[in-house]
Design a protein around this nucleic acid. Structure first.
Length: 465
RNA sequence: GUCCCCAUCGUCUAGCCCGGCCCAGGACACCGCCCUUUCACGGCGGCGACGCCGGUUCAAAUCCGGCUGGGGACGCCA
């Protein structure tokens, strides 16, 4: 195993969304590609908003996508003593100071600065304060360098530099003594010996502050790679109003994990003109240098296409298991009437999601209550009755063993009665499924079984009589 | 407002680093045709982009500058 160590560090304040999932995937792929270590760390220092429920949801999402971690999950709340030691160290070294400015004061100063067109940064009031009223509430700020610039070479974006004058003295410890995000990440990444920090674009601005912290603490600075954001169709940051953003929601809508992974890996990353990647191919081909610098728009249509592709490829037995909950929501909990894997096989080329497949599979388990009257109206009643009678008789006599045999029977019977295929195909299809949109008749007959097929033909015959 | 980042078909993208092979390739979506017992699958074809303006060069999607547009950050959130 190499020294390469990466991490995915979500905050448990909600579900695992597709943006986070992609970040996790890129980290995972990078680690697997180089034989490194993938670490999962829960950033729960915001004790107000963090919930166990969110932790569970995130873990569930990761597991569903198959993003297994080598170490963790670690919780930052378990490291509070560690952070305190480091805060103290900075205080002792004169690299941090206590600040008694109230939130209201700061808020007012920010607004004033914005109004005047200045950057709303902390003005350093307490930086040189002499009295230390320790009985009054205070926060601890990092004493950031005021001149020069902080730069780094981003694996995706190249060189990025910030004038230090743009950065202010950030709070590293709150009034209640808990450490803040920017401080914790640095301590954790340093102590966990994270070599590459692959994270969302929205952290670019935090990077120079974190670099200054690494330097102040005497820790080596990791290599950064900032992945551009995922946007919604209106080019605004992807959010709920663009549709589902939760990974688990996609599972529940009937998407396969391999489809979501494949979609996500191609969002912002490419390998020539390749579109389909197996898990193994992703690992082999993934390369951080090929990640684009521009943000990308989430396109559900393409996800549908990939999902349809993987549904076609999937093992019917596996799909059958995954389909059950979807059938259940449509009132079908007993699937013993027709072989479910067989049913699935007839629908694999016709469904983009498992939910859609379930809807299309319903007729196998619920004999049609109504028929497509418009389709039936194209034929006169004697013809329909004749077709149903002849087909039922033929099926009974021949006992076909597979779909091809059934189809052969139909050709035979057309010849015998000088009917055109559509004249018998459509009525039978409607009799069996209720609709004209259905799998091939041979496939339906085999999945339904001869007895049920004939029963449905009889029922249809009574209806048209 | 300030700072940071970004800019090829509607969307995801190849090409850009190492200018000419690009009057720009692939994929999704859309349209048409074919296949066909329906619906699909599949096959074939079509529509469709280098944001704008300058510069460098024999030659620019590719290099440089400006503009415009978009995104992000500016929290005792992460």
């Amino acid at each position: 195993m190499s020294d390469l160590r990466v991490r995915f560090a979500p905050s448990p304040t909600g579900y695992l969304h597709v943006g986070g999932a992609r970040t996790a995937l890129f980290n995972w792929l990078y680690a697997r590609h180089f034989g490194g270590t993938f670490i999962l760390r829960i950033e729960d220092t915001d004790t107000e908003r963090s919930t166990q429920q969110s932790v569970d949801a995130i873990l569930q999402g990761m597991e569903w996508l198959g993003l297994d971690w080598d170490e963790g999950p670690f919780y930052q709340t378990d490291n509070f003593p560690l952070y305190k030691q480091h805060v103290q160290k900075l205080l002792d070294d004169g690299k941090a100071y206590r600040c008694w400015c109230s939130q209201e004061e700061l808020e007012a100063k920010r607004e004033a600065a914005m109004a005047e067109g200045r950057k709303p940064k902390y003005d350093g009031t307490c930086r040189h304060r002499q009295d230390q009223p320790l009985d009054q509430p205070f926060v601890i700020r990092f004493k950031a360098p005021e001149e020069g610039e902080t730069e780094f070479s981003d694996l995706i974006k190249g060189r990025i530099a910030f004038p230090n004058a743009e950065l202010d003295d950030l709070i590293i410890s709150r009034t209640d003594g808990t450490p803040t995000y920017n401080f914790c990440v640095v301590i954790d990444d340093a102590l966990m010996r994270i070599s590459h920090v692959i994270r969302g674009d929205d952290h670019v601005n935090n990077t120079p502050r974190q670099i200054q912290l690494y330097q102040a603490l005497g820790y080596p600075v990791p290599i950064f790679a900032h992945v551009p954001m995922i946007l919604g169709s209106d080019k605004a940051r992807l959010s709920k109003r663009h549709g589902a953003t939760s990974v688990i929601a996609y599972r529940d809508m009937g998407y396969l994990p391999e489809a979501l992974n494949n979609y996500l890996v191609r969002l912002g990353w490419s390998h020539g003109d390749d579109e389909i990647f197996s898990r193994q191919e992703m690992i082999e081909k993934f390369d951080i240098n090929s990640v684009g610098r521009a943000p990308s728009v989430f396109n559900p249509e393409k996800l549908n296409w990939l999902n349809a592709h993987y549904i076609k490829q999937a093992d019917p037995a596996r799909l059958a298991e995954l389909l059950k909950p979807h059938l259940a929501t449509h009132g079908v909990s007993d699937t013993s009437a027709a072989d479910l894997a067989g049913v699935v096989a007839t629908l694999q080329e016709r469904a983009q999601t498992l939910e859609e497949m379930a809807e299309r599979a319903l007729f196998y388990y619920q004999a049609p209550q109504a028929y497509d009257e418009a389709a039936l109206a194209k034929f006169d009643k004697p013809h329909l009755a004749a077709v149903f009678t002849v087909v039922a008789a033929k099926l009974t006599a021949a006992q076909p063993a597979d779909a091809a045999a059934v189809d052969a029977l139909f050709k035979e019977l057309c010849a015998e009665h000088s009917w055109k295929m559509p004249q018998v195909g459509q009525p039978v299809r409607v009799a069996l499924s209720g609709s004209t949109q259905a799998p091939g008749i041979g496939e339906i007959v085999m999945a339904l079984g001869l007895a049920e097929t004939i029963a449905r033909l009889e029922r249809a015959k009574e209806r048209v009589a």
